[in-house]
């Protein structure tokens, strides 16, 4: 009970945008530093320490950007869904800010996943693209990100846009388990999961460790970019509020 009260109090204190920005400013340099260190470790591991695959040869090195990008693309959508819930159910002032700030980041990581996957597929499968369930559901995720970004830009009132976007985000969450389990539910050219499996990873530790280091580095980068984008969104809303107040005061002055 005490833990629930404490976590509610933390959430309430973060609800104040000014306090959130102050905390973000303190966290950002540390998170950025940690991310750079992780990339400095992960990239040499991926390029020089991880062995070539016995079937795919050196082409397997694409995995160290393709797979973390895919994980972050899906993780970002889960973050947006949690924010959408926070926005609709608890009316948390920063929830919509979080969702809107995350969308372009999710779109970028999904694009990286799709393009690097295509560049990996061409030499391995002999095709740039196949309409199998994994690739198609990932493309749907990319289109959903673009649709949500367009929605936020189309509706001027951020509160109204936020509500509509939150509903769409929650409807779209169905695509995440479809992406994850598509390789099990349907026959796909895309390989089955080899890390997050009920019976444990099937990938050798010499490849698993570089992959996990790169994934944590990508996660750190997501954290840095999300905090920065949230700060931008708070600023944008503050400028809009000042502009509207100025316009209102101007009209009153004329009347």
């Amino acid at each position: 009970m005490a833990n629930v009260t404490a976590s509610q109090s933390t959430l309430q204190s973060l609800a104040n945008p000014t306090r959130f920005v102050a905390i973000a400013d303190r966290v950002l340099p540390w998170l950025l530093g940690l991310t750079l260190v992780l990339f400095a470790i992960g990239l040499p591991l991926a390029f020089f320490m991880a062995p070539a695959d016995y079937q795919q040869g050196q082409t397997v090195r694409i995995m160290f950007v393709h797979v973390p990008a895919a994980w972050i693309a899906m993780f970002t959508y889960v973050v947006m869904a949690a924010a959408a819930l926070g926005s609709l159910v608890w009316k948390h002032p920063l929830a919509d800010v979080s969702a809107r700030a995350a969308a372009p980041i999710g779109a970028a990581f999904t694009l990286i996943c799709l393009v690097t996957g295509s560049l990996w597929g061409r030499p391995m499968w002999g095709a740039w693209w196949v309409w199998d369930a994994r690739l198609t559901s990932m493309l749907v995720l990319f289109i959903m990100y673009l649709g949500l970004i367009a929605l936020w830009h189309t509706i001027e009132d951020p509160i109204r846009a936020g509500r509509i976007a939150a509903i769409l985000i929650l409807v779209g969450i169905i695509n995440i388990p479809i992406i994850k389990f598509s390789v099990d539910w349907w026959y796909t050219l895309h390989q089955a999961a080899s890390v997050f499996r009920f019976d444990g990873p099937t990938i050798h530790t010499s490849m698993l460790i570089p992959l996990l280091v790169m994934a944590v580095a990508f996660m750190g980068l997501f954290g840095v970019l999300h905090l920065m984008a949230m700060k931008n969104e708070i600023l944008r809303r503050r400028i809009r509020a000042i502009g509207m107040r100025a316009a209102y005061e101007g009209r009153r002055g004329v009347a």
């Binding site: 050196q58 694409i62 393709h66």
Partner: peptide
């Protein structure tokens, strides 16, 4: 003796 070096470089470059 990297096989498909162009694809690997392109993937990292796109990222």
């Amino acid at each position: 003796g990297v096989d498909h070096l162009g694809f690997i470089i392109a993937a990292y470059a796109v990222t």
